[in-house]
Amino acid sequence: MIQYFAIALMLVGVYGLLTQKNVIKLIVSLNIFEVGLNVFIISVGYVSGGIAPILTSQNNTSALLYVDPLPQALVLTSIVIGVGVTALALAFARRLHNQYGTYNLDEMEGE
C-alpha cells in the first residue's frame, strides 16, 4: 500500500514541476518528488516482520529476520545529495530575485 502512496507523491512532484511558475514552488516540487522516490526505494527493501538492521544487546544475532540494509544505505546517500541540490537551487533563486526582483519565471525580462 505504501508503495502506491510513494508513487502518487512522485507524480504530485512531477505535476508541480510541469505547472508551477514560481521558482521556490519548483524547488518544493523537486523536494516532494525526491521524498516520494526515497520512500519508494526504502519500501523495496521491506520484509514483513523484519527488524531494523542494527545488532543490539536485544536483537543480538545476524540470524534474525532483518529488513534489507542496502536500500537504506542508498537512500542515506540520496538524502544528502538532495540537501546539496536544494541548497544550490535556493542560492540560484536568490540570485534571480536580486536581479529581477521577482520569483515568477514569466515576469523575468531578458536583457
Binding site: 538492521p53 545488532l55 540494509p69 542496502l70 544505505a73 546517500t77 544528502v80 545529495i81 540537501v83
Partner: peptide, 26 residues
C-alpha cells in the same frame, strides 16, 4: 553493529567519498 553503517562507510566507502564530494561542490 549498525549494518547500514557497515554498508555506507566500509563496503561502499568509495561511494560515500563521492557523495561527500557532491556536497562539497554544492
Amino acid at each position: 553493529a549498525n549494518i547500514v553503517t557497515s554498508v555506507v562507510v566500509n563496503y561502499r566507502s568509495f561511494d560515500t567519498l563521492g557523495e561527500v564530494t557532491v556536497l562539497f561542490v554544492a
